[in-house]
Amino acid sequence: MAVIKLQRPKLGPGEAIYLTALAKGFFLTLSHAVKSLLGKSMGAKDLASSGLGVTMQYPEQTWDDHLPEYYRGAPALVTDEQGRERCVSCQLCEFICPPKAIRIIPAEIPSDDPWAKVEKRPAAFDIDMLRCIYCGMCEEVCPEQAIFLRKDYVITGLNRKEMVHHKDKLYQIGGVRTGLVNKWNELK
């Protein structure tokens, strides 16, 4: 067994009474504070600081331009370039959702619908944004490329009801997404 014995460093008389160390510490903290006050904190520029520390003053300045590609905001449903709602209500997202935020009521597509051959779509698709933890599992599990986590993060409401995103709202956030696999086109 490789046991490395570490010896505590021997302290000189100056170090032993800590006073110089304390003074050094005060100086360090104070100089950092001054830097912060002058807006010269490390990373202040990258984080679009408002001038004090590295903080961005939220409602006036927003993150929108700085969101990374992989940002996980509000989950939303998308339609494709053919105007088809991609969700077929397979309920896998409802199943995988760790906080059980998703509720789907499936329904059959009526035979006079142009996409009747897809057979199934959600009659209701609710995501309770009070429950959603933005984990992205729904997007990962979706076999139809129908649900995506968008960059919307300002989800507000005055009561619990308002915080439930219904199907319309989800499609409104999601919008049209192009370049997805259109496997249903090949179906008879």
């Binding site: 202040a44 408002s50 004090l52 520390g53």
Partner: peptide, 13 residues
């Protein structure tokens, strides 16, 4: 405020 400044924050402003 001073804590915030030391920690590169803004504090109650």
């Amino acid at each position: 405020r001073f804590c915030a400044v030391i920690q590169d924050r803004v504090g109650p402003n």
